[in-house]
Write a protein that binds this DNA or RNA. Structure first.
Lengths: 69, 69
DNA sequence: ATTAAATGTCAAGTATATTTTACACAAAAT
DNA sequence: ATTTTGTGTAAAATATACTTGACATTTAAT
């Protein structure tokens, strides 16, 4: 898994810090950092919460057309 | 969380059993059953794997426009 | 040059996703 | 009638998402 630049970009577009996003979705700042860093696997509930805050959809932030295969 | 009828329908459209889908994505049948039953919260990796097998996207199977708010 | 804010990372703990084994029930097949 | 296949569900164990607290580094501000 590579870094999730889409989340980072969407967050930046709203001028939110990792801490801001973390508080908005109710997780720790480290969790947001880990998601953007990309080396892990959040739950769909958290992904959906992030999407709602950042005004994006799951496909926009968490779908990759070319994952492998 | 309500039941996920979208996964159930997409699976039925391909004439796959819960067991078939479970094996295709590499989890237990109970996990698929629990997802369709809806009372829980899979990881995005598993959701993505299910989407790939069922030839759907995250938005199609796991996004709900009207969750709450 | 210093301070503060934002980010990256780590280790130990807690919460929960997922497995395994097992059993009950419904529907379809024989 | 009875066997088989698909589904719903539960309890105990394991894997892993997520937290907490802490520290280092970067970036922007003063």
């Amino acid at each position: 898994m590579g870094r999730n630049l889409k989340v980072k970009a969407a967050r930046a577009a709203l001028d939110m810090t990792q801490k801001d996003l973390a508080e908005a979705v109710g997780v720790s700042r480290q969790t947001i950092n880990a998601i953007e860093k990309g080396d892990y696997n959040p739950t769909i509930k958290l992904c959906t919460a992030i999407c709602r805050v950042l005004d994006k959809t799951l496909n926009e932030l968490f779908w990759e057309d070319d994952e492998n295969v």
